[in-house]
Design a protein around this nucleic acid. Sequence first.
DNA 1: CTATGATCATCC
DNA 2: GGATGATCATAG
Length: 220
Amino acid sequence: MLATAAGAARNAEKGHMNMLAREVAVARLRGIVGRDLRVLADEYGVTVFLSGRLNKGWAGLTLERFLGLSAGNKQIPDTKDWELKLVPLKRVGNMYVPKETMAITMINPEHLIDQDFEHSHLLHKLQSLVVCGREFENREEKHSRLVSVGTFDLANREIRKQVRKDYDLVRETLRSKGFEYLTGAMGVLVQPRTKGPGHGSTSRAFYARTGFLEVILGLR
DNA sequence: CTATGATCATCC
DNA sequence: GGATGATCATAG
């Protein structure tokens, strides 16, 4: 583990091996576009339903297994310096559009106050995304084809500027009013919204609104 | 318990 | 049907 972490650190310094790893991951994922992720989930033993209840992350976990990535609750897995995301897509005519928003990263109040946008988890994650789309049929989740694999790095100046504005708004609201005042109504491209196990948990995360998600997916 | 993988449920 | 808050399984 130490050797692996040290190697990852060296690669991060060179900024080369990890970039390559991301491209390799993209290539591997593109190799299974069209495959039914439900079948893959069964092959990897990923729980989809338990006692009639859905494991909402089943498809994402299935792709992690496919790539051999570590699961767990680390904010930045040392096995990669990029972020893998899988979003459900719905058909509208002959086009695919995001079924809903996409959670980006958890909001840590202390970190949000201490770090400006340039040093935020939000920016770092949005700068190195591998975004996949899967076809969402219905809540039965009988089948789900992997339909797209792409990358995103927040290169567009205008988009980046707006994301920074959203970040600053959330940050300023936290400073002046408090964590509890962070609501999903805030933000143009990115919004702060509750996320977590529920049942009283008060945690929040940054989400990409569907319009922004369309940009991220390269749909426009 | 919290963060990660996310989507569900409800309200308008 | 979209927007916002609530929640599910898993793993450390």
